[in-house]
Every structure is written in C-alpha cells, then in structure tokens.
Amino acid sequence: MELPGLYNYWVVVFLMMAGFYVVISQGNLVKKLVGLGLFQASVFILYITVGKVSGGAAPIAVEGITSYSNPLPHVLILTAIVVGVATTAVGLALVVRIYEAYGSVEEDEIHAQDLVEDDISEDPPFTESEVGKQ
C-alpha cells in the first residue's frame, strides 16, 4: 500500500465529512443546504479521482494520443452536478417559504413553533443527529 496514491482519497473523505457535519449539526436551514452542497461536491471529486489515468489526456480524441482518462465517471458526475443544483434550488425555495411562514430559518425555533401548534404534542423531540447511525 503506497500512501501517496491514497492521499487524494483521504483529503476527499475529510471534505466529505466536513460537509456532512454541517448538514447534521447546523440548525440554520441555509447552512444545511450549503453543507449538502459541500458533501455532494466532495463525492463528485471522489468519482473524478477514480477516472484519472496517470499520463492520460482529457477524453477528447486527438490524433497521436492513445491514453485518455476514463470518460464514464465524467458523464456520471455531469449528471450528478445537475441533480445537486436541482436539489439546492428546491431546498432554497422551501427555505424562502418556511421563512415566510415561520419568520425564521432556524430549525430549533421552527420546531418549537410546531410543538405549540400540535394539539397533542407527545412527539419525541426531533433530533436530526440520529440520522446517520449505522
């Protein structure tokens, strides 16, 4: 196992987890979306890393070059980027509507307002952090 070859992955993992942490720990809805963006963008880097061939060229056929990087991950990530921005857009629209309805974009405040409204508020307190338990 050579460390330098894996180093790139580890940086990606760190970035991914930074994004994931923002998503599950932050109470601000906009920041959650930024976190999701970070998380997804890091996954994209993971895929593109996989497609790289040392000494390869960008996958556009040019005479005289025989070694190209793998085009398939690029295609997948193009699609994934689009999916990501679509999700962000829908999320932002929801945030705007939530702000108009609740006057806040903080998860705690919104949840507190919800509890008051519930006729019978026997719900266990909502903890986002239980999400990622494996």
């Binding site: 196992m1 050579e2 070859g5 894996l6 180093y7 790139n8 992955y9 580890w10 993992v13 760190f14 991914m16 987890m17 994931f20 942490y21 599950i24 720990s25 890393t49 996989v50 790289k52 061939v53 040392s54 000494g55 390869g56 070694s67 903890t127 986002e128 952090s129 239980e130 999400v131 990622g132 338990k133 494996q134």
Partner: peptide, 27 residues
C-alpha cells in the same frame, strides 16, 4: 458531540474503504 460521532464513524468507514481502493491514476 453526537453529530461529530456520526461523522467520525462515517469517515472511518470511508477511510477503511479506501485502503483497498486502486491508487490514483493507476491505469
């Protein structure tokens, strides 16, 4: 603390995964 724990576990799984992954640029 709790989110940090979740993230650490997930990250650990990811690092674990990369141990057997092909090296960067390996044709």
């Amino acid at each position: 603390l709790l989110p940090l724990l979740v993230v650490t576990i997930t990250g650990a799984v990811l690092i674990y995964a990369t141990l057997d992954a092909p090296l960067l640029g390996d044709a």
